[in-house]
Amino acid sequence: MPQSNNNKKKNIAIGAGVAAAALLLGAASYTATKPSDSAGGTVKEAAEGAAPSAGQQAGVYPELERLARRNAEDPLAQGRADAPVVMVEYADFKCGFCGKFARDTEPGLVKKYVDEGTLRIEWRNFPIFGADSERAARGAWAAGKQGRFWQFHEAAYADGSKEKGFGEDRLKELAQEAGVKDVGRFVRDAGSDAAKAAVKKDQEEAYGLGATSTPSFLVNGRPISGAQPDQVFDQAIEAAAKSAASQGKGSGKGGSASGKGGSE
């Protein structure tokens, strides 16, 4: 019971701390699956109308920045744990625009910013499209247990993949495509209470921010909704890196790293 009470207090504190940003993200979430021509879309415009904290860029919230986990052992993340910029991505494998981001934008961000140490990407499972979404999220988590999350991510978001659904047999096919060595273990892990708890944790974090659509992102505490044009992410990442440098945060040099692949 004491642990439960502590968790409740922590949730209340987080909820109070991100209230303003949650309202902004929630207000814009109905367009989160529709690309916008404006940088950051409605969220950015609303955020820039709010007063930033001392020393912070407009539209950047310290409370949201602290949601970055920076766990070097996290198989659902790629990039250095000490990277100056962390992009948290809340997404669903059934989401068409999440797939568009994964295929068209993310690879460029990895090559341009992750590989050279500026950016870390942390995935959060945010299934919102029913049972198929939930199964895919648990499957992705299970693939991560064998160090193949990002390979599963690539297979699940391949052009035409979501149209095949995410039934149990399809998940095993994706696991094999991803190079998961022990498919029997994958099936057990995907159906485990641990998988359900991990997915629920990510999902509740997203809902706590006011997100109701996918994809949604936080770039060092700056909310971005939808599969925005590449330059929106470039601008947000570069601004965050510049701000971090001015504050002496994360050099991206040395420290622990977590990249694609690996094994448990």
Rank of each mutant, 00 (worst) to 15 (best):
D189R: 06
G221K: 08
A239R: 11
E204Y: 04
R222H: 12
D234T: 14
D202W: 09
K172Y: 00
V199N: 04
A236F: 13
K242H: 11
V199D: 03
L218S: 01
K200Q: 14
K164T: 13
Q231N: 13
F233S: 06
P223V: 11
A190W: 02
K145M: 07
G208D: 06
V199P: 03
R185A: 15
K200A: 15
V219N: 08
D169V: 03
L218W: 10
D230Y: 15
L218Y: 09
A158L: 11
E173A: 05
S213Y: 11
N220V: 12
G179D: 09
S243N: 12
S225V: 13
R222S: 11
F217Q: 11
G160R: 10
A211C: 04
Y207M: 11
Q203L: 14
Y157R: 07
T212C: 00
R138A: 04
A239E: 15
K200T: 14
A158K: 15
Q151L: 09
V187E: 14
S243T: 10
P223A: 04
W141L: 03
A211W: 09
S243V: 05
G139I: 01
E168C: 00
K242I: 10
A156T: 06
L171G: 04
E163V: 10
A241N: 12
G226C: 05
A195K: 04
A178N: 06
G139N: 04
E163Y: 02
V232N: 05
L218H: 03
A143T: 04
E154W: 01
R222L: 10
G210I: 10
A175N: 01
G221H: 09
Q231T: 13
V183C: 04
A140P: 01
A241Q: 12
L209E: 06
I224Q: 12
Q231K: 14
E168S: 11
G160L: 13
A241T: 08
R185W: 02
G191H: 01
W141Q: 02
A140I: 10
F233T: 10
G191R: 01
F152D: 02
Q228H: 05
L171D: 02
E177G: 01
A175Q: 00
S216D: 06
G221D: 08
R185Y: 01
Y157S: 04
I224N: 11
G167R: 06
F217G: 07
E173Y: 02
G165L: 07
P229C: 11
E177M: 14
P223R: 06
V180I: 11
L174W: 05
G144M: 07
S243G: 07
A206N: 03
E238Y: 05
K181H: 00
Q176C: 00
A241S: 12
I224V: 15
A143W: 06
H153I: 01
A197M: 01
A158C: 09
G221R: 03
V183E: 03
A156Y: 07
Q146K: 08
A143L: 04
Q151F: 14
K201T: 15
